[in-house]
């Protein structure tokens, strides 16, 4: 097959080699490693669009990821980005944000990396209202390491380390984040592309700790082990079972195994960030 651009008139599509989003992607790395029907790619697609809409110049945006399937995001974005060790994306990002407060620092990682391995960093960054945008792709399982049970795996779901069904109580991540003091909390599935994009734009422009939970299919491990079909079937599941409830009490938004998923913008408050307080700008200059 020739590699030239061919305009195939009869069917109506153009066959091309480049995508308009390629300017923000390391297109020499594409196709990426994510499995067919995995939802992470869609989350990245929404992020690229959100970054454009936010008006933040590319050179002012830094993306930090940890380890895992979602941890690969930093490597696919054509921005200043860093791929840290497992769970340590937030401490690294905190350093970047404090050393250079003009930057918009984004942490883009998975549930296993952020909520379990790096859980302590997550809660403390939220408590301090550190000026970070955290995008957490929650697919309910450790993907890259082999489908182990995570702290976000719903009860009764099967994983490679819970072959008879998970018996642990999972984290309700938005509730955890609100309790810790995050300024902005939203949750969407990758099916809600427009709303997810808007939430990411708002989170990017939020002064303070902004957290966006993205519910996404892991086709190879989570859906296969639980016999839920592929990511395509999970998208249909989201379509039928996601309920939009803006301002919902985060206490009520926990996720069970194949139960209703409550999505929306849950928290959006304004309060001084860590740096503002530290510099005494909002505390009357008291040392």
């Amino acid at each position: 097959m020739s590699t030239a651009v061919t305009n195939t008139a009869p069917t109506g599509e153009r066959q091309v080699q480049h995508h308009p989003k390629d300017t923000l992607l390391r297109d020499d790395r594409l196709p990426h490693i994510w499995c067919p029907t995995c939802g992470i790619g869609t989350a990245v697609s929404c992020f690229v669009e959100a970054l454009r809409e936010s008006g933040i110049p590319e050179e002012k945006c830094v993306v930090v990821s940890g380890i895992g399937c979602t941890g690969r995001v930093a490597g696919y974005l054509n921005l200043d980005s860093f791929h840290t060790t497992h769970g340590r994306a937030i401490p690294f990002a905190t350093g970047v944000a404090l050393a250079n407060p003009d930057l918009h620092v984004v942490v883009f990682s998975g549930d296993g990396d952020l909520v379990a391995i790096g859980g302590n960093h997550l809660i403390n960054a939220a408590r301090r209202n550190m000026n970070l945008t955290v995008i957490c792709v929650n697919n309910f399982i450790y993907g890259m390491t082999g489908g182990q049970c995570a702290s976000t795996t719903p009860e009764t779901a099967r994983t490679s380390t819970s072959p008879r069904g998970n018996t642990e109580y999972p984290f309700n991540v938005p509730y955890l984040m609100e309790a810790c003091g995050a300024s902005y909390i939203a949750r969407w599935t990758v099916l809600h592309i427009r709303r997810l994009k808007k939430a990411m734009t708002e989170a990017l422009n939020k002064n303070g700790f902004a957290f966006v939970e993205v519910i996404a299919p892991c086709s190879t491990l989570y859906s296969r082990r639980n016999k839920l079909g592929t990511g395509y079937d999970l998208m249909k599941f989201y379509h039928d079972n996601a309920e939009i409830r803006h301002g919902a009490n985060t206490k009520d938004v926990g996720i069970g195994f194949q139960t209703k998923i409550i999505v929306g913008k849950f928290v959006d408050i304004t309060k001084p960030t860590f740096l503002e307080k530290y510099q005494g700008k909002t505390t009357g200059g008291g040392k």
């Binding site: 109506g12 592929t230 395509y232 998208m235």
Partner: peptide
């Protein structure tokens, strides 16, 4: 007008 990069597609049908 729709444009497709055939070699990147993984056939998810989304």
């Amino acid at each position: 007008v729709v444009s497709i990069i055939i070699e990147r597609c993984k056939g998810c049908s989304f």
